[in-house]
Amino acid sequence: MTFAIFLEQVINGIIIGSMYALIGSGIALIYGTMRVLNLAHGEFYMLGGYFIFFLAVTYGVPSWLAIPVAVFATFILGVLIQRLTIHYLLEKEGWLFSTIAVTLGLSIFLQNAALLMFGEQFQSVPYYIDGMVEIGSIRLPLQRLLIFVVAVITIAAMTFILKKTRLGWAIRATSQDRDAAAVVGIPAHRIYLITFGIAGALGAIAAAMLAPIYAINPWSGLPILLKGFVVVILGGLGSFPGAIVGGLFLGVVEAIGVQLTSSEWRDVIAFALMIAVIWWRPWGLFGKKPS
């Protein structure tokens, strides 16, 4: 592997990794705020992708409008799922397992509902921008650069919301101590709804950016979900910054690993990395060891 190829793989890895980071941070937000592991997270990505496809391709809505509309629709979907299922289960005993089980059921249900409604053919969305940039010996399609720019903007916006707004303070307070947050008047249930919605929206943004590269089909959520899980294990479950770093790290490791082996081993590399981390640093590569 020459240095130029190595560098190109690192750049590609960071670009795809920035999308893994969006998926992982959605899972981390939900887990961080309400200790729910959302197995239906891949379906936010899958349905978000379909929303974009129908708006942008079927109805010809310009992409600058189609993407926000699809992201908002997925936000609403997230809110609905939380309100109709998780909301009731959190009140009952055994919620730790019942919430995982119900999201598994939701995942299967939504996948197959999509299969029945949209069919099994692979759909894709045209590139949002054409053209290439050349930096030294490396040629990079503008589309890929756009992915990275959108990821950076999204992460910056999320960081701003979490650190600087009342909503963000409420989310972080609830995740630190739900009861104490309730004492100072933070409505935990509303925070849960919004968090689920935001996580869905993050999934839809990733779907919008990846739709031109990866095809959309009813099963496209599962591999993305599993990648998101690897990311949160790497970054420490429930940590938003951990998920960002974990996503970028996973992207780079995968890209270099694929270069050394072949693309069909991509997922094995990711999961093996995860199991290695579980063996050596179960609190995550970038998390703190619990005392």
């Binding site: 995982i100 995860m274 199991i275």
Partner: peptide, 10 residues
Amino acid sequence: MPHVAIVTLG
């Protein structure tokens, strides 16, 4: 529990 679920699935 979530770690167990994730790792076994992976």
